[in-house]
Nucleic acid binder design. Structure first.
Lengths: 180, 180
DNA sequence: TTGAATTTTCAGTAATTTCTGAAAATTGTA
DNA sequence: TACAATTTTCAGAAATTACTGAAAATTCAA
């Protein structure tokens, strides 16, 4: 498993960014390696390439599996497991959106609902509930969006994103449009 | 600075979630406290309420300032600085989107551009560049979107989000619509 | 200016997270 | 079934991150 300088610099960068995304350095590096390599890789190859222990790779794979970010493959005549990333970058993006929502939004939404069901004990609680209500409504809408994206084909997702700076125009004319 | 049980449970939750967002526990708790309290708070009140050291609060405030998440206020006759969050939840959301983009996307986009400018040394590099190109294009579109959101009023942002499950419909009819 | 009030910095410590090697568990084939 | 190959687990070590108290710096009113 030889890594080119270009790959190395990208892998390092993903490592540094890894922690800013909910992952960690090693996980970022592992995923970069898998995404940037055409052939599926086995755990030993990953361990060699990134100079990390075999057991660390095993834990990393477990985590990447829990994120649904890797595909598992078998090569005939080889007992090792091989890992690869989806070739469709939109599929990866979609998965990331879904998984981040699960981890970052869903638990909070549920906590918000609990708080809103309680009787406010005093003025402070009343104010708190107002704010929670606002945050709840916002997060719920983001959730609806992400569900929509989840069920969207790569083509459609791509079209939507390319709409980019056209969003404003659509909104300006939305009423006219929706009334047709 | 008395905290109600309702506030306490929300603050705890924000603390736990804090690390899943690029913040940390204390920062999450601090921001929850500030958002959920109607009155602006000073550093000592935050320190008291959350049972953390005054210096920790100072560092937290510095961080929240760098995220543009808090407003600084002065109360006549009081030399202390008071902090509050925007009352408009959309403004907070907008700020979060911008700041997360700055931290999570921009540096990566720049690394991608560097890699794409290089001459591929071999087949592996050619494949790597293909994948980088895909990721680059996707991230650039997300960036354009976030810039759009950045310049959008709260009203408009709210309208867009509420569109929710209407997005698919809009896309289906996009061509018809845009040709008008 | 001066000095009390307030905020910030920072070195050392504490807490948390990540990583490793060794051992246990699992898998698949002969 | 037996066993070699492979993967997973996990306790302890290493690395990183967060927190504190004390001291330095800043602010502002008199």
């Amino acid at each position: 498993m030889i890594i080119t300088p270009m790959q190395q610099s990208l892998i390092s960068h993903f490592g540094e960014m890894g922690s800013r995304w909910g992952l960690n350095r090693t996980l970022g590096q592992m995923y970069a390696l898998i995404v940037l390599t055409e052939q599926p890789l086995n755990a030993d190859q990953i361990s060699d390439a990134l100079l990390i222990s075999r057991s660390n790779v095993s834990m990393g794979i477990k985590e990447l599996k829990s994120w649904n970010l890797i595909k598992l493959q078998h090569i005939p005549g080889d007992r090792k497991e091989y890992f690869s990333a989806p070739k469709d970058i939109w599929e990866i993006a979609r998965t990331l959106i879904i998984e981040r929502r699960k981890r970052e939004l869903d638990p909070t939404l549920s906590t918000f609902r609990d708080a809103l069901l309680q009787d406010p004990a005093n003025e402070a609680d009343k104010y708190t509930q107002q704010r929670v209500q606002d945050m709840h409504d916002l997060m719920e809408m983001v959730t609806i969006w992400s569900t929509e994206l989840q069920n969207m084909s790569s083509d459609k997702l791509s079209t939507l994103l390319k709409l980019g700076s056209g969003v404003g125009k659509i909104l300006d004319a939305k009423d006219r449009f929706l009334s047709k």
